[in-house]
């Protein structure tokens, strides 16, 4: 059986908000290491990889591996009933038909109990090779969100160019063109507000802004975001949170 108690409902609520528009149904794979999810969007352009490590829960118990097939829209509806500060407990039997969710208020004067039907999802897992990326860019998550939103007003796609001079986000469309260049900064007082660029070679890749804007729905989960790129491979966008991560992979566009 699974029993996982999470001190802050907000973590799960924000995580769902960050993935439910990209993925409709997904298996939450539970093991003694924690709860993970890997799913592609319908058009097979983007992939979401979530890990909530066992040590992020207190307590966490999972006797045998379980795949909980969940409609993310349904889970999101149930989680709307949880307050951000509530303590959430997830429970499932072995070979379960339902997932049980309990929301307790901080001072335990209100306990809400929900049961959600599970579904059978035959989901293939993709092998994601360990990659030493040529460019690793860490920046404030809010900055990345703003850049993607601003450039999506100009064009459907953005070219990200990482070089020793900085990282340049550039878009060109019918109304004109625009770009934002970030230089490396160091803010010892507020490391989350710094931009760092680690580069072994220059990288230039073009991506759909629709997907990037979608990824930035994870902004409330983390102060910083890391973009990892190599030429001709998918972009990795990572939001690290306490007790896990939310990663998005996005296939690049290629020139005709």
């Amino acid at each position: 059986m699974l029993e996982a108690r999470l001190a802050q409902a907000a973590v799960l609520k924000k995580t769902l908000d960050a993935i439910k528009e990209l993925v409709t149904d997904a298996n939450f794979d539970c093991s003694d290491g924690g709860i993970s999810l890997q799913a592609m969007d319908n058009s097979h352009v983007a992939l979401v990889s979530l890990l909530l490590r066992a040590d992020g829960f207190e307590p966490y118990r999972c006797d045998r591996n379980l795949a909980l097939g969940i409609n993310l829209n349904s889970l999101s509806k149930v989680l709307r009933s949880a307050q951000n500060e509530d303590i959430i407990t997830l429970k499932a039997a072995d070979d379960p038909d339902n997932l049980s969710l309990t929301f307790e208020s901080q001072n335990q004067d209100r306990i809400s109990e929900y049961e959600m039907k599970l579904m059978d999802i035959d989901q293939e897992h993709l092998g994601i090779p360990e990659t030493a990326y040529a460019a690793v860019i860490t920046m404030p998550a809010a900055e990345f969100q703003r850049i993607c939103r601003d450039l999506s007003g100009i064009s459907e796609s953005v070219t990200i160019d990482a070089s020793k001079d900085g990282v340049k986000f550039a878009s060109a469309g019918d109304i004109g063109n625009g770009s934002v260049t970030l230089k490396q900064t160091h803010n010892p007082e507020e490391p989350a507000l710094s931009t760092s660029i680690e580069l072994s070679e220059s990288v230039t890749l073009t991506f759909s802004l629709k997907y990037l804007v979608n990824f930035t729905k994870a902004t409330p989960l983390a102060g910083a975001v890391t973009l990892q790129m190599s030429n001709d491979v998918p972009l990795l966008v990572e939001y690290k949170m306490e007790g896990g991560y939310l990663r998005y992979y996005l296939a690049p566009k290629i020139q005709d």
Binding site: H44, A46, L126, G127, V233, K253
Partner: peptide
């Protein structure tokens, strides 16, 4: 112009 590639091109099923 540019064409969107699918992820399956890069990542293979396990």
């Amino acid at each position: 112009g540019s064409q969107q590639r699918a992820l399956d091109f890069f990542f293979k099923p396990k």
